[in-house]
């Protein structure tokens, strides 16, 4: 069964199988901006941060979520009759509404929704099930210098699964990368790093207070973890999601780039510093999860502004890209 077929059904009971079991919310093949070459991205659920601009809001919770894409619905209402909890109802205006608290994640609605409007986010996978999917593109990795990247969410939230999956990928000769916010216990990162060829990480703001108000946590632990990774000689790509009005001042860019240069001094192999301009592609997913998007109306930054900031960063770090 491949990742696509797994979407047709969901079982909570999969969680209770032996061995490290991960909660994976997407496996995307042919990812080309996430660690070099053609890669497969494995997205793990759960994140300690609550960034207002989060592009994968379905990743935040460490538990499954229920999601509905209204414009895929064909109005067959089979989901309503299938739900044993009466958690899917129709309001007075004829709109389908999910009573999320009532959902028991039995998966019956997903099984009946042939149009793909209802979905449960997250599948409980074993390391082997994950790697089987990853291995399908092995030839592409070999021909392009790619591999597997574990992303999220914050992949280290699923510490046991992540380490086992990385180790298994290494054992199978694959290039491994993680995409991490670096907020977590150092012991976890130390163990992860031993199985990881490349760390993709980001710093949302250099000011601790601003960082806390934007993401819910201070940047102190993050900066500390990044310095420790650097001291171990980690290969890194540092990324900055450039959010208009939040972290896009010249001063913050300069401070971030200076921090990245400092990581190099500490011993990190910094492959690049990527400025990732804000985009709104995550916005509909907030609505599909029944949540309010915290940053309505924010527009992507102007091209000239981004290029100017990139040139500031180049004063500190050699390899600056826009868009990764």
């Amino acid at each position: 069964m491949n990742w696509k077929q797994r979407q047709f059904s969901f079982s909570l009971a999969d969680k209770d199988r032996p061995g490290p079991i991960g909660l994976v919310f997407d496996i995307q093949r042919f990812a080309v901006h996430d660690g070099g070459g053609i890669r497969t991205l494995v997205f793990l659920k759960g994140c300690p941060l609550r960034c207002k601009w989060c592009q994968n809001p379905e990743s935040m919770s460490p538990h499954p979520d229920i999601m509905r894409i209204p414009h895929h619905c064909i109005g067959c209402v089979k989901c309503m009759s299938a739900c044993p909890e009466q958690a899917i109802v129709m309001d007075e205006d004829g709109r389908v509404v999910i009573r999320r608290d009532a959902c028991s994640f039995c998966g019956k609605c997903v099984a009946t929704c042939y149009a793909g409007s209802m979905s449960i986010v997250g599948r409980y996978l074993s390391v082997d099930e994950t790697l089987v999917e990853v291995e399908r593109d092995r030839q592409f990795y070999e021909n392009s210098g790619g591999g597997v990247t574990f992303s999220g969410g914050e992949p280290s939230m699923q510490r046991e699964f992540l380490i086992a999956a990385l180790a298994e990928a290494k054992r199978r000769g694959l290039h491994t990368a993680i995409e991490t916010c670096a907020h977590g216990p150092w012991e976890t990162f130390e163990a992860v790093l031993a199985q990881t060829d490349l760390v993709l990480t980001d710093i949302k703001h250099m000011d601790a207070g601003a960082h806390k108000s934007l993401t819910g946590v201070s940047n102190a632990l993050i900066a500390d973890n990044l310095r420790r990774m650097a001291a171990l000689g980690a290969r890194m790509r540092i990324r900055l999601p450039l959010i208009p009005g939040c972290n896009d001042t010249r001063e913050n860019i300069a401070a971030t780039a200076a921090f990245v240069a400092g990581l190099e001094t500490l011993g990190a192999h910094v492959e690049g510093f990527d400025i990732l301009p804000y985009h709104r592609l995550g916005e509909p997913k907030w609505e599909q999860l029944g949540r309010q998007y915290p940053m309505p109306g924010v527009r992507p930054p102007a091209r000239d502004h981004v290029l100017e900031l990139a040139s500031i960063a180049r004063g500190y770090v050699a390899a600056v890209t826009v868009g990764g």
Binding site: F30, D34, L200, L276
Partner: peptide, 15 residues
């Protein structure tokens, strides 16, 4: 799929 770093979704799922 519009390829953006670290992002997961299909074009047609967007509004």
């Amino acid at each position: 799929v519009v390829r953006v770093a670290g992002y997961s979704a299909f074009f047609t799922a967007l509004d």
